[in-house]
Design a protein around this nucleic acid. Sequence first.
DNA 1: CTACATGCAAAGGATTTGCACTCGC
DNA 2: GCGAGTGCAAATCCTTTGCATGTAG
Lengths: 164, 164
Amino acid sequence: MPPQAGSDSTARTQQAWSERARAELQRAGHRRGGARELLIDLLEQERCALTVQELGRRLNGRYEQGVTSRPVGIASVYRGIEVLADLGLVARVEVGDGISRYERAAPEQSEAHHHHHFVCDTCGCLVPFDDTALEQAIVALEHRVGFAVSGHEVVLHGACSGCC
Amino acid sequence: MPPQAGSDSTARTQQAWSERARAELQRAGHRRGGARELLIDLLEQERCALTVQELGRRLNGRYEQGVTSRPVGIASVYRGIEVLADLGLVARVEVGDGISRYERAAPEQSEAHHHHHFVCDTCGCLVPFDDTALEQAIVALEHRVGFAVSGHEVVLHGACSGCC
DNA sequence: CTACATGCAAAGGATTTGCACTCGC
DNA sequence: GCGAGTGCAAATCCTTTGCATGTAG
């Protein structure tokens, strides 16, 4: 029973995400700029974490194909992702290669859509998974330690069965 | 009951580390160079993960104090840490700031000295901890997923109670 | 009209690589 | 003596910042 990338509730959660993102941005006093709107659209479509360079490449790919009218500067992607991360709308994922990846985040502490990552050290692919027992162990642990825990991240390393 | 950085078994495990490291290096066909020897000595003394820049700064601090006869180039630290990491003698830790940190690794799958990290997002300090229930959950999870898992990393984020 | 948002280019940092020299074996 | 190991500096790559321009509200 290998873990699945998307669960049944994914579609619903996913569709709501961009709406929630835009609402949160407006509430935080941000204007709607072209680059960030495109970034939000892209993030909504992606199922798992991407690097900023990858995000930028995809956005500019659309421009080069004539889908969008302007190129998106890599700086705008960095700035956009930073704002979204600060608002908790995207989660930063680090899997061990020194490059940050980003993906849509579930609302607040909601368990919906919350997941972790398996990284293939051979081909570099990312496979998302979730595990209830693991989450329970972490919650118990959070109570045991003497600090205020605001979040956690689990990364499994190994070799995938020939993905990519 | 806050987690402790060093457990009772630390001293023993720790002392054995540099010996094991040197033995493994020799077995792998590496010569003994000055920089790498100093790096091994430093890693043995450190209880938790350090960045390469920090490692280099400490090594050169010793040089400036006249303890060692030559400066250690930062490139040698990178190269040394890479060799040690490839042999599984040091573990790379990433806590979310995009900078890799390294620390002694426990032999093979041994649970001895195996630990994870709590990161204070305010002051950036690292606090190591270990948790049996968490490890058990991860072992169970590893069997459940369809891939060969070779290692794992857990990072808790939050605010420490005024450390540093 | 006033600021925030953006694209571009330069700047910053971490990490890697090229190269000549040193030194372990 | 040969070649891995090393220090230094240049090169890379990811990320941030400065600045003039565009544009949402």
